[in-house]
Nucleic acid binder design. Structure first.
Length: 920
RNA sequence: GCUCGGGUGGUGGAAUGGUAGACACGAAGGACUUAAAAUCCUUUGGGCAGUAAUGCCUGUGCGGGUUCAAGUCCCGCCCCGAGUACCA
């Protein structure tokens, strides 16, 4: 029988499902290992060949770990809340739950065909009330906690209330957004509403007014990571800044912990770097400048990382949104300032960006006093200062900051150089190096000493203090949308109040339409009787990242209705040992999950502080589009190599009717009615298509569906080919060219133990040559899997099978370990061989074969590398040998003497490990 | 601008500082076959010499350097990709 992958794959997929082969044991003597994929959003388009790349890698690793004797948890689920299903619902009236359900079914079907070893009994869906109950629960917990900067952890809000009752808020060191200070007596006198407002400024999940990213087209606000280049990541619609009251998560409280713990994680440096940049820690100082508007004096605090440059301050700048603007604008400038602010408000984020570096600004009319020189400097307003970072006000040092420099040039403000020898006639000198001048007591110091010296000085004078700033902002947590988790919050006389836990989950209500109401309220406002005990419920819903932030805990204990995860299950599974997914989540999901995890850790619900110990980012699989070239105004198509001889139009052609860049002409004619009568100018009897690497998308006709590959080549070929394509972490275009090689390899492997209809394995002893090939492979595969170098291990299989086939190796002693070795990559064919070898249990319960080094020892000194006065030999010697011993061994070696015949050896130079030079 | 990756045949890609191009695709030639498919064998970075076995030169984006030895390490450029962006 030929290698009939269709039958084999169907058989084993059914076997695994029937026997629950991959169900993870909740209790086990074995050590645990948790391998997780980033769960997908089930889109309407189904999976394309890019999606399974990471899943295949994680599956190989999971199967490998099982063979190594681990109790492996390898689950899968769906990130099922999201915008596309809702947009579709708005257009069609179809309930998002229905479309989502349909898409999930299709995803599942497609994944099953690839032969993944998921434990489907633990599947989770974020849109399932039994699941989002725990998302809502976590939100209430965050609502009921505040972040104590003294103990560096989240603590119950009751403890904070107790402090307020005893001593007000002056002694509290919290991450907060409360602007009021009060005594115990004052606290006692506040009414309920006032107390609620104050506490809101301390809660980890809080409601607050800030500038948010508002996307008018989607009718909702978005978090920072959901906006790229001023456009929404979903849909690509313009986003503008708007002040709104929204639910937020105090992620910023965890900035330092999120940053410092990165060092301990086994993630790639580039990913850690992305998170570091996103968190954006900068050390500097806050400094107080006295500002006068002519009639009144104010203390305005600024933030700077260059305290050493105070002597070069020639003006000050406020953000247009700064609260100081109103106070510091003098009557004569009022009209101009108002006009400027109006203009900047009108601009969307995108417009601000496209008008790059266009310098704009307006003078307030006020003057600030330089705290060190006493000089009076003007206070301006400009968009280049951001309200949300630092204090929203800066001291401008045009000589040493390029933005201040541009501003100074545009408005003709003075520029004072502070570093010896720097030239600021054309540009600022931003580097933190050189000797200070024009700087009073700092003169002569190096910049690196001057910065701390300047801060020490202002601290001692009480006009400033050291300060660390983070770029990381709190996460906006409200969405004005339907298809998300409802907030478990109702408004009791206007006071936001969490539902009792017994009321969870708060189910998403049915509504007639999925759009906002006429008055612009979120869709949930359409729900009938959206109240609790007569009080109105919150109408916004949670964002996409809410459900995906702690899903990995749920897999540990998916059916628990007492808690997110039981203590027992959490103590056993702890955290994710290996997480595989795309880099696109670096600044979103992976920050939120770490934050969420740390919060639950602080509260004592989970035992590990970090969720993902090791993280691998699989590269993206891009599309590879094919083109045909139509001669203008005809229906004649010319092959790629001849296209320059004609005036042609390039047309995308469906890659599924092109093989190795050769067009299937009949299929092309049938593809679209227009082409039925097409004529062709061929090269050597074939039509060669052009190609380009583009994003994989329907409109480019370059989407390759894994189902097609499974139909034509089988899942084992698909799995091995995706790995063979190149390094896992690298992005690469999908190119079916080359898949034949992998398929050929599997057929060859099949023929090792099948001849016609006969199973031909013998029970004889293996020869040394066979064992050598086997053990080289064992060693290679083991190290490659551990290094996630799956492409080279596929090559190693090809080499080994070629060699063993040449040796006519069909003995059990080799084929048994070979089946185990290949089973993570091509599990179906491996199971088939395993069964034919007489095993009753799945190959997943076998043990990874042991590598025996003695089968691979090479003969030493077997060839000369070069001869050129010097003779060089590559040798393999134990590392423990010292140079003298090596020299003696070399000269004594028989082979070596053969090469040295007649040569007059003057010197033997032993260079590290492998090579020796012999000077003759 | 800043940060991090990366540049190797016709193609995808291999190479703990140690024979560059493993493995695979494609291509060319051949065997088997009435034919096709399948399978197998040979050649395949470029150049030169030779009937040949073979030998020599050259070659990993560019220019320098360290080293007995550099695709790999160092310095300076060029190009491509990703992230981020008035973050003071």
């Amino acid at each position: 029988m030929e290698y009939n992958f269709k039958e084999i794959e169907k058989k084993w997929q059914a076997y695994w499902a029937d026997n629950k082969t991959f169900e993870a044991k909740s209790k086990s003597e074995k050590p645990k290992y948790y391998v997780l994929d980033m769960f997908p959003y089930p889109s309407g388009a189904g999976l394309h060949v890019g999606h399974p790349l990471g899943y295949i890698a994680s599956d190989i690793y999971s199967r490998f770990k099982r063979l190594q004797g681990f109790n492996v948890l390898h689950p899968m689920g769906y990130d099922a809340f999201g915008l596309p299903a809702e947009q579709y619902a708005i257009q069609t009236g179809q309930h998002p739950a229905v479309t989502t359900e349909k898409n999930i079914a299709r995803y599942r079907q497609q994944m099953d065909r690839i032969g993944f070893s998921y434990d489907w009994s633990r599947e989770v869906r974020t849109c399932d009330p039994d699941y989002y109950k725990w998302t809502q629960w976590a939100f209430i917990e965050m609502f009921n906690h505040w972040y104590n900067n003294d103990t560096l952890k989240a603590e119950p809000i009751e403890a904070l209330i107790a402090i307020f009752e005893k001593s007000g808020n002056s002694s509290v060191n919290a991450s907060h957004s409360c602007e009021e200070s009060f005594t115990a007596a004052q606290w006692a006198s506040f009414d309920e509403k006032h107390k609620s407002d104050i506490l809101m400024g301390y809660r980890i999940a809080y409601q607050g007014e800030t500038a948010v990213n508002w996307c008018p087209k989607l009718g909702t606000v978005l978090a920072n990571d959901e906006v790229k280049e001023g456009l929404s990541v979903r849909g690509g619609f313009p986003v503008e800044q708007k002040k709104m009251k929204q639910w937020q998560l105090r992620v910023s409280a965890y900035a330092e912990r999120l940053l410092s713990k990165l060092d301990e994680l086994d993630w790639t440096d580039s990913l850690k770097d992305m998170q570091r940049n996103w968190i954006g820690k900068s050390q500097g100082a806050e400094m107080i400048f006295k500002v006068s508007n002519g009639s009144q004096d104010y203390d305005v605090t600024i933030f700077t990382t260059r305290a050493d440059t105070v002597f070069g301050v020639t003006f000050m700048v406020l953000a247009p949104e700064s609260e100081w603007v109103e106070k510091l604008t003098v009557p004569t400038q009022k009209a101009a300032v108002e006009e400027y602010i109006l203009q900047s408000k009108k601009k969307t984020e995108r417009e601000r960006m496209t008008e790059t570096r266009k310098v704009t600004g307006v003078f307030t009319g006020s003057y600030a006093t330089n705290p060190l020189t006493g000089d009076k400097v003007p206070v301006w307003i400009s968009e280049y200062v951001l309200a949300g970072y630092g204090t929203g006000a800066i001291m401008a040092v045009p000589a040493h900051d390029s933005r201040d420099y541009a501003f100074a040039k545009a408005f003709n403000l003075p520029i004072i150089p502070l570093i010896e020898g720097c030239d600021v006639s054309n540009e600022s000198f931003d580097a933190k190096e050189g000797k200070m001048m024009n700087s009073g007591f700092l003169n002569g110091m190096d910049v690196k000493e001057a910065i701390p010296a300047a801060i020490d000085y202002v601290e001692s004078k009480g006009i400033g203090k050291r300060k660390v700033n983070y770029r990381l902002r709190d996460a906006i947590f409200s969405r004005q949308r339907y298809w998300g988790e409802p907030f478990p919050i109702y408004y009791k006389d206007g006071i936001p109040t969490p539902l009792p836990l017994s009321e969870l989950p708060l189910n998403l209500p049915e509504i007639d339409q999925y759009k906002p109401t006429e008055s612009g309220e979120p869709p949930l406002a359409r729900a009938k009787d959206w109240t609790y005990n007569g009080y109105p419920l919150e109408t916004s819903t949670m964002p996409g990242f809410a459900g995906s932030s702690a899903y990995y805990f749920r897999y540990m204990d998916p059916h628990n209705d007492e808690g997110l995860v039981s203590k027992e299950s959490n103590d056993y599974w702890r955290s994710v040992d290996l997480y595989i997914g795309g880099t696109e989540h670096a600044t979103g999901h992976l920050i939120y999950s770490r934050f969420w995890n740390k919060f639950l850790f602080d509260c004592g619900y989970v035992c590990e502080d970090e969720p993902f110990k090791k993280l691998i980012n699989q590269g993206m699989i891009q599309g590879r589009s094919n083109f045909v070239y139509r001669i203008k105004n005809t229906n004649t198509f010319v092959s790629c190599g001849l296209k320059d001889k004609y005036d042609t139009t390039e047309i995308h052609v469906d890659v599924n009717i092109v093989h190795n860049d050769r067009l299937d002409i009949e299929a092309f004619k049938a593809w679209m009615p227009d082409f039925a009568t097409a004529e062709f100018v061929l090269e050597d009897g074939e039509y060669i298509c052009g190609y380009a690497v583009e994003k994989m998308s329907k409109s480019m006709f370059n989407v390759v569906n894994p189902d097609n590959i499974c139909d034509n080549y089988g899942a084992d070929t698909l799995r091995m080919y995706e790995m063979f394509l190149g390094p896992l972490e690298q992005s690469k275009p999908w190119d079916t060219k080359g898949i034949d090689g992998v398929n050929r390899f599997l057929r060859k492997f099949w023929r090792m133990f099948n001849d016609g209809d006969k199973f031909i394995v013998e029970d004889r002893k293996a020869t040394p040559a066979e064992l050598k090939a086997l053990h080289i492979l064992i060693n290679k595969v083991q190290t490659d899997i551990q290094n996630f170098s799956f492409n080279t291990s596929v090559s190693a299989f090809m080499i080994a099978v070629n060699e063993l086939a040449d040796l006519k190796c069909n003995c059990r002693e080799v084929l048994e370990p070979l089946a185990i070795l290949i089973s993570p990559f091509a599990p179906h064919i491996a199971e088939e061989l395993w069964q034919q070898l007489g095993h009753k249990e799945s190959i997943s319960f076998a043990s990874f074969p042991e590598y025996k080094a003695e089968y691979t020892v090479e003969n030493s000194f077997d060839y000369p590398v070069s001869f050129n006065g010097k003779m060089r030999f590559k040798i393999t010697l134990p590392k423990s040998m010292n140079p003298k011993e090596v020299e003696a061994a070399v000269l004594a070696d028989e082979n070596m003497q053969k090469y040295l015949q007649g040569a007059n050896v003057k010197k033997v130079i032993v260079v590290p490990s492998k090579i020796i030079n012999i000077v003759c």
